[in-house]
Amino acid sequence: MTLATSEVAIVRPRSRRPSSMALALIGPATLFCLLQLLVPVAILFRYSLNRFDPASYMVDALTAENYVKFFTDPYYLTVLARTIRVSVVSTLICLVMGFPLAYWLARMTSRWKNLMVILVVLPLFIGNAVRAAGWMTLFGAKGFINSVLLGSGIIDQPLTLMYTEMAVVVGIITVNLPFMVLTLQSVIEGIARPIEEAALSLGAAPFQTFRRVVWPLALPGTLAGTILTFILAMNAYATPVLLGGPKFTMMGPLVYDQFSQSNNWPFGAAVSFVLMATTLGLTFIAHTALRRRRVG
């Protein structure tokens, strides 16, 4: 009997107390995230229901007036609409620009591939402010673009490029494009090349092969990349601050200003939640819509 039991124990050593072992491994990280993420977000939500008082800043209350203020004031609605517009436009351009590069990288077999991937990954880690600085040298009144255009006589007045919506969109695209490319690349690499070759050798035109084979198979990655870049665009901070200037307010800077300058914590908390809810809501709608199209 003893032998039999110990044999069972030897053959399946881990099955004795799997859940306590799993708890010991997964528990600490989960607990940390709970304390560091869910509890703060819950407190923030509670703050958004408090009342702002110019004298004592925050008064305990249970009111929706901060949300009402946001959705009835045209200024804040403009900021929200602008943020959504910039995010949608930059995400679509990221998709159009990202797909060829992702496909090119995924199908690359030369020894340069690793270097090319590093060139896509490296800017991710440089920080948004530095990349905005790069565009500032191009877009300024004395910047590269105006110097070239003025010098060649194409224009005689410098163009206003800084502090425009175009500058912000361009800046956000540079920041988000690597995320899109890397997400798409990993999915395209998973599509076996013989599938494409089969379609081509059966007489499908390259565009047809793309539309009927590559695109549908890459759709999960497209969805993931689009959602990721959209979330990042909605929450951009450094890019709109540096390339949009003080008047081109987006939601991210608005949240920060409510906390750091207006000291209106309840309203800042409410703006945070509007931002988070809008981002998640639009992500959910896009997700459902695309999934339905794929099924139908």
Binding site: L101, W104, P123, V130, A133, T137, G143, V148
Partner: peptide, 28 residues
């Protein structure tokens, strides 16, 4: 593909270029 890659790298190229300019104001 290469123009998308260039687009990603353009700001970094310009920041690097600016770091070696003789004059303080970034003009070209």
């Amino acid at each position: 593909a290469l123009s998308s890659l260039a687009f990603i790298l353009v700001p970094l190229v310009f920041v690097t270029w600016l770091a070696f300019f003789k004059q303080e104001i970034p003009s070209f």
